[in-house]
C-alpha cells in the first residue's frame, strides 16, 4: 500500500514562498484582492506561517510551511454530511467540489484550519483567466477546497506508467511545492516504503508533527 507523506526540513526552508506561489498557480487558486485579504479570506492551500517561541530578548522564530496535513485519522471526513471529503487509499484526503454543499463543517472540524472556503467565485485579472491549469478543476463559489498533494499529477503519473506498461512507482511524481523548492526542504514520497527518504526522515529524532495531541495522525512531519 502507498501512504503518501511529506517531510519539511525547517532548517533548510528559507521562507522564500516559492512553494506558495507554485501551489497557487498549479492548483488554480484564486488570486484574491486586498479587501478579502483584510477580511482573512485569501485562499492559499499552502501557507508559510511564523511560529515565535519565547519572549524578548530570548526569542526564537521558525517558519512553518503549512498545508493540509493529510491525516490518517482526519477529523474533517467524519463530519461531512455528503461524503464530499473522504480518505483515499493512497493516504491522502480528497475533496469532491461538485458534491460539496458548502456547510463548512469540515473546515470547522480541521484542528489546523487548513481547509478553505470560496466566499466568492474566484476571479483572475486579465490574461491570467485564460492561463489556468487544465488538469485542475476550477471551483465555484460556495465550495470547500484544500491541498490534494497534487492528485492531478498523480493521475498523470499513473497514466504514464500504464502507457509504459510498468507498475507505478511512488517516486514517479512530486507535487508542485516540492518541485519548486530551491533548497530541497520538502521531501515527498511513500511512508509505507521503509527505504524511502521520506519514511526514514519521518522516523528520525528531528521529526515532529503539529498538534499531535489532537490525535488526527498527520502525515506531514517537520524537521527541527
Amino acid at each position: 500500500m502507498t501512504r503518501l507523506g511529506m517531510v519539511i526540513d525547517l532548517n533548510k526552508c528559507s521562507g522564500c514562498q516559492a512553494c506558495v506561489v507554485a501551489c497557487a498557480t498549479e492548483n488554480n487558486v484564486g488570486l484574491g484582492n486586498p479587501e478579502d485579504a483584510a477580511m482573512g479570506r485569501i485562499i492559499r492551500w499552502l501557507q508559510i506561517l511564523p511560529e515565535i517561541e519565547g519572549e524578548y530578548p530570548h526569542v526564537s522564530g521558525k517558519l512553518l510551511p503549512m498545508m493540509c496535513q493529510q491525516c490518517d485519522r482526519p477529523s474533517c471526513t467524519y463530519v461531512c454530511p455528503v461524503a464530499a471529503t473522504y480518505p483515499v487509499s493512497n493516504g491522502t484526503v480528497a475533496q469532491i467540489y461538485w458534491r460539496c454543499i458548502g456547510c463548512r463543517y469540515c473546515v470547522n472540524a480541521c484542528p489546523y484550519t487548513l481547509k478553505w472556503f470560496n466566499w466568492w467565485k474566484p476571479v483572475w485579472p486579465g490574461e491570467m483567466a485564460s492561463g489556468t491549469n487544465p488538469d485542475v478543476t476550477l471551483r465555484d463559489k460556495g465550495v470547500t477546497e484544500k491541498c490534494t498533494f497534487g492528485s492531478h499529477r498523480l493521475l498523470r503519473a499513473k497514466e504514464q506508467a500504464r502507457e509504459e506498461k510498468r507498475p507505478m512507482r511512488a517516486t514517479d511524481y512530486v507535487p508542485a511545492c516540492v518541485e519548486s523548492c530551491p533548497t530541497d526542504a520538502i521531501v515527498f514520497g511513500d511512508l509505507d516504503d521503509p527505504d524511502s527518504e521520506v519514511s526514514q526522515l519521518t522516523r528520525s529524532s528531528r521529526a515532529s508533527r503539529v498538534l499531535e495531541e489532537v490525535g488526527t495522525r498527520p502525515k506531514v512531519s517537520y524537521l527541527n
Binding site: V82, R99, I101, C103, K141
Partner: peptide, 29 residues
C-alpha cells in the same frame, strides 16, 4: 437558518442522495 448558511443551497438534497452517516449534520436533518 442552516439552509441560508450553506454555500450551495441548490445542492441541499445531496444530503439525501449521498448520505454520510457519521455526520451530525445528516442526523440534524
Amino acid at each position: 437558518s442552516v439552509i441560508v448558511d450553506l454555500g450551495g443551497p441548490h445542492r441541499l438534497l445531496y444530503v439525501l442522495k449521498f448520505p454520510h452517516f457519521t455526520s451530525a449534520v445528516l442526523w440534524d436533518v
